[in-house]
Design a protein around this nucleic acid. Structure first.
Lengths: 353, 353
DNA sequence: CTCTTACATATGAACGATCAAATGGGTAGA
DNA sequence: TCTACCCATTTGATCGTTCATATGTAAGAG
């Protein structure tokens, strides 16, 4: 018998289940049982088999297991091109959370890039027809979103981070953060800091997420009896636009003392506007952003923002998805979670008197 | 014959190679040949088979193919936890580029998170012993880096973005960006703007990447006959530290009129310091960062920075890796690429005295 | 002492593709 | 008209598992 060390330049040969069986002097099925149904084995043999497994460093071949079980234990996830104001994005934090959560459940994550919805669907088609993934996690749902319907039609398991904005869409599992609840909390936080004129910098009407976030400001101003008139301005997302809109509010006859913004990018823009007018953000005017993106901690003063519980969202997404993979008949589950106000310098000082 | 539409709630049944064979009235091996060795078939049958493939929407099962070929066409990539100054990170841009490049070569990318090097190695071990990936792409190489040696010992194909900083390390394929060349270009750019006293804000001595980037400043100041003395300051990466270090330089007897920084975070900190002294960045003092991270475009004024050609790096990484997977005996290849100065407001104005 | 019961282990057949080698039919040369 | 050869296609074996079922053995009950 010659030495079986891997030749240099050659990949090491992975031991198979049969090698383990020979080593433990049992049949290969017994090894399979030892790993998949340990209670079927006599404790003594179980120990012997596991010892052989350990010694040979055996891990079942994923490919063979996939073929046999018709499962890959792989989840697909589109990692979007974070263009433009992408710095205020939470994608990478979410991807991290998804990877960690998947790993806990014994799943892996296949990440792919796609140009647009259609390209993303093309990837779904490719990956599922090849049987390369068991399901998908979607994010950034929007009003005209062909993805859920496409997946539902083909009975492909998926969970969406982001609620469906279309009434007609068929039911599926999703998780989302209550944007209205977030801005409500922001206003309450500011009211506790003695603010009464609180402006809202939002996205154009018709934007689903934007309207949702505006609703909380509306609810809170009503509940606390705060003024509303002339305190909402709207525009497309971006730092420069945020500056323009905030300038509009701050230059009015009765300027607000605090600004709740629909995004961190808008908030940073608003901070610039305040600073240009010689106001000290955090003392003369408070600013609150949304998403607690990386941007919030690098600006000066640091930005108070609403943090989404991405880690627990990712965990729930994976749990739901795994449930759908194991039992495709399972009915859709939905859940809405609350963001948290992360207080930083931009709203820290309480204006007393 | 009953209808074979997928029952509601059931996943659609993917057609197998045999179904295609029946449909095209050939044997299943002919179908395999049609896809893998089309020249073996008579054009007429080839067309007939491909038509059946099309009509049934057939895609070969990845699991079966993996089992037979002992390849997964999957690449592993660790997506690091971008903590602290993570906003100035290029990880997500690189991940995107890797996904796109892999897709072009018919590969997928499995992303995983890991706590540290050892945890990353544990993932390598798990993924390779299960035969879940064909190879890895590494990034963020550092001086004491156990990863390459571990992979080399086991003959696992990989390519590293980042040169090996350890002399003793065994040879492997890597790609890197020439940091020295970057700072050299930055200095030249500033010299073209009539600057002569150019400071350097770097990381502590002994940091590999930091020393590399410092070397370009040294070379350029020598070449252009610029002053060096008292113009280099060093500290750990971060916006706050950047402010401190820049303050040190700007408050000296002969302050520099331009600052080349080892990172965008440092550069943004430097901009804050200048602004605090009442200087207008871009007019009174020029600042150049490194990495062209998202941060560079969101600060005001926008930051001139050195952009790494991540897209072509990712492409070369994938090409090299695929080469190593196909032929493990292939010898190691290394390549160093040049960054580009992306000129923005922080250095745009030419000081014509 | 025999028959049942229970439990531990072994056997056989997939899963869906690819690779290597065998078979078939047609055309060309003698 | 027969043999030879070549090309197109098919048959057979295999990758490494898991699932369903069959076999064997020891202990307990009648």
């Amino acid at each position: 018998m010659t030495s079986e060390l891997p030749a240099s330049g050659e990949q090491a040969v992975r031991p198979t289940i049969k090698a383990v069986a020979r080593h433990a002097e049992v049949s290969y099925q017994t090894v399979s049982n030892a790993l998949n149904a340990p209670d079927r084995l006599k404790p003594a043999t179980l120990a012997r088999v596991l010892k052989s497994v350990e010694e040979l460093g055996y891990q079942p071949s994923q490919a063979a297991r996939n073929l046999r079980t018709q499962r890959t234990r792989l989840i697909g996830f589109r990692f979007e091109q974070t263009a433009g104001a992408g710095i205020a994005s939470i994608e990478d934090r979410f991807l991290h959370a998804v990877c960690a959560a998947a790993r806990d459940r014994g799943y892996g994550v296949i990440v792919f890039s796609a140009e647009d919805d259609d390209d993303e669907i093309a990837m779904y088609s490719d990956l599922t027809r090849r049987g390369a993934v068991d399901g998908f996690i979607l994010m950034n749902s929007h009003r005209v979103d062909p993805r859920p319907a496409w997946l539902i039609e083909r009975c492909i398991p998926f969970v969406c981070f982001g609620r469906p904005w279309q009434r007609t869409s068929r039911v599926h599992s999703w998780l989302d953060v209550d944007g209205g609840s977030g801005t409500y909390l922001a206003v309450r936080h500011l009211v506790e800091g003695r603010h009464r004129r609180i402006g809202f910098i939002g996205w154009p009407e018709g934007s689903e997420v934007g309207d949702d976030r505006h609703s909380g400001w509306l609810a809170a101003t009503t509940e606390f009896g705060l003024p509303k008139r002339g305190l909402t301005v709207r525009g497309l997302d971006g730092i420069a636009v945020g500056t323009q809109l905030a300038e509009q509010l701050l230059s009015s006859a009765k300027p607000p003392s605090a600004l709740v913004c629909v995004s961190d990018a808008m908030a940073v823009g608003a901070m610039h506007a305040a600073q240009q007018r010689g106001l000290v953000v955090g003392r003369d005017v408070a600013v609150v952003g949304f998403d607690d993106s990386p941007l919030a901690t690098v600006v000066k003063p640091t930005l108070t923002s609403l943090r989404q519980p991405l880690e627990s969202i990712a965990q729930k997404c994976i749990d739901l998805l795994v449930g759908h993979i194991d039992d495709p008949a399972k009915r859709a589950v939905t859940s809405v979670m609350e963001p948290t106000v992360i207080v930083r310098e931009s709203s820290a000082v309480i204006t007393d008197d």
